[in-house]
Nucleic acid binder design. Structure first.
Length: 508
DNA sequence: TCTCTCACCTT
DNA sequence: GAAGGTGAGAG
């Protein structure tokens, strides 16, 4: 897939010329953040600190959209699995000389528990109390604004796990059978999408997702392949009870009328809906997408969702229809399509060279809140924008500017995220005056959070992450908002994670 | 329901 | 060549 992400609500009100230039460069990226403009808003102080121009663009927006349309979900293991599509963003509007910490965490999208039955996800009860969350600190942190803006910021190595005891600091999304009780919420930008977690057997249940991943994830390339390979593989895996049937022959695109996922029709909005922005009272602008009401966390009525990826056990109900996504996304691998990232990252120099190695990245810091949020359901209005619907989103990112970087106000972990019904989000650590930060001086000058939203579903040891309901247009992947620097760590979570339980695992 | 293992692939 | 990621089946 080409690295084309234009036409998705690009910034229209850059804070300064530099931001404009960067925006121009990011023209193919998805806008994730908006600008805080109102001087009378709660974000006024933030604005004064120069956070108003910070924007975050989601990379590979089209791919995210594809997954969003189908209903993203992923299998999470105890060993930890990377998210796919990987979370990459382009940040603009930072002060080139100021140091920032880039964080990401995962929060529940809602407080429900889900089960997959009758070919659909349905609420089975209320989610259990949220667990303390973790924040994944980008291994390059802290780094100057120039550094962050120089190239894409990739969270590709972030792993999700359902093992809350994970010693590597993977992001826990919870696990066990209870799974999808929540939708995760990306928090860097306006949450326009939802990430819900669902308990899924041991494989992805939503049709289309598997194929999408196979076609796009280079590591799953082994599942692509010719008919010969299909036959070979099927032959290898065939059981005594089932005949060898090429996978290509067991996929079916079912008509709407017969889809087991029949339900409300999700209509991906036109670009007009994606690009328009609204000004929040707090000064944070958001897109019209933000105004959309929360939708069914697991709408599976889209056309794409009606595509069955059958297994041998299902071939009786399948035909030979080919997956519509197969071709479009087979052209290039994510790595191939990302020349910007590939070319620029290796050239990084300066402050953070020590973070460049693989081992260093694995040592990316993980931080957990000391106490779980009182409200498992993030109220976005409480965060920064009252037009921000309390809709779970998938991931969020926060940019924190800081001066000294002695210690972060969170419990430290070594590397990955463990799973729980969480939503990844990039969160900022800055703007705290908490004693935990170290001294009487605020470590951070300002902070901006950015988020976009895929849905994460979770199931037992193997959890699935699901994409946001289509009614929540992923179109608006740009957003940013500030947080008063006077917040304590606890307050921070109130702001960024109200209800977001970045982590709680429930392994059985 | 969950863990292990597999073949195949990328890094 | 080693390490690691992937979806899926077996148990």
């Amino acid at each position: 897939m080409a690295d084309s992400e234009e036409g998705f609500g690009l910034p229209t009100t850059p804070a300064d010329s530099e931001a404009k230039e960067l925006q121009a460069e990011a023209k193919q990226d998805t806008q994730l953040g908006a600008t805080s403009k109102s001087p009378t808003s709660p974000q006024a102080a933030f604005t004064q600190q120069g956070m108003e121009g910070i924007k975050v663009f989601l990379h590979e927006r089209e791919l995210w959209l594809k997954f969003h349309e189908v209903g993203t979900e992923m299998i999470i293991t105890k060993a930890g699995r990377r998210m796919f599509p990987s979370y990459k963003v382009k940040v603009t509007g930072l002060n080139p000389k100021t140091k920032y910490i880039l964080l990401m965490d995962i929060v529940p999208a809602d407080d429900h528990r889900y089960k997959f039955a009758d070919n659909k996800w349905s609420v089975t009860g209320k989610a259990e109390p949220a667990m303390p969350g973790r924040l994944y600190v980008h291994p390059d942190s802290p780094a100057t604004g120039a550094h962050w803006m120089r190239q894409l910021v990739s969270f590709q190595k972030l792993k999700l796990t359902n093992n809350h005891l994970d010693p590597f600091g993977h992001v826990s999304t919870g696990g066990g059978r209870r799974a999808p009780r929540s939708v995760l919420h990306p928090r860097v930008a306006s949450p326009t999408t939802i990430m819900a977690m669902s308990p899924i057997p041991t494989s992805i249940v939503l049709a289309g997702i598997t194929q999408l991943k196979i076609e796009n994830n280079p590591f799953a390339k082994g599942f692509r392949g010719s008919d010969d390979m299909e036959l070979h593989r099927m032959s290898r895996m065939q059981s005594k009870e089932y005949p060898v049937v090429p996978r290509s022959t067991v996929r079916q695109k079912v008509s709407s009328n017969h889809s087991p996922f029949s339900g409300e029709t999700r209509v991906l909005s036109a670009s007009s809906n994606l690009g328009s922005q609204y000004q929040c009272e707090n000064g944070v602008s958001s897109t019209s997408q933000d105004l959309l009401p929360p939708a069914n966390p697991y709408p599976i009525s889209q056309e794409h969702n009606q595509i069955y990826h059958c297994t041998k056990r299902k071939d009786e109900e399948c035909s030979t229809a080919e997956h519509p996504y197969k071709k479009p996304y087979m052209e290039t691998s994510p790595a191939e399509e990302d020349p910007f990232y590939r070319s620029s990252y290796p050239q990084q120099q300066g402050l953070n060279t020590s973070y460049r190695t693989e081992s260093a990245q694995r040592q990316a810091c993980m931080y957990a809140s000391s106490a779980p949020p009182t409200d498992p359901v993030p109220s976005l209005e409480d965060i920064s924008c009252n037009t921000w619907p309390s809709v779970p989103s998938y991931s969020s990112c926060t940019v924190s500017a800081m001066q000294p970087m002695d210690r972060l106000p969170y419990q430290h972990f070594s590397a990955h995220f463990t799973s729980g019904p969480l939503m990844p989000r990039l969160g900022s650590v800055g703007n705290h005056t908490s004693p935990q930060i170290g001294d009487t001086h605020s470590m951070f000058q300002h902070q901006t959070s950015v988020s976009h939203q895929p849905i994460v579903r979770q199931c037992g040891p193997q959890t699935s992450i699901q994409s946001p309901p289509s009614s929540l247009q992923p179109a608006e992947f740009l957003y940013s908002h500030g947080v008063p620097r006077t917040l304590s760590p606890h307050q921070y979570h109130s702001v960024h994670g109200v209800g977001m339980v970045p982590e709680w695992s429930e392994n059985s």
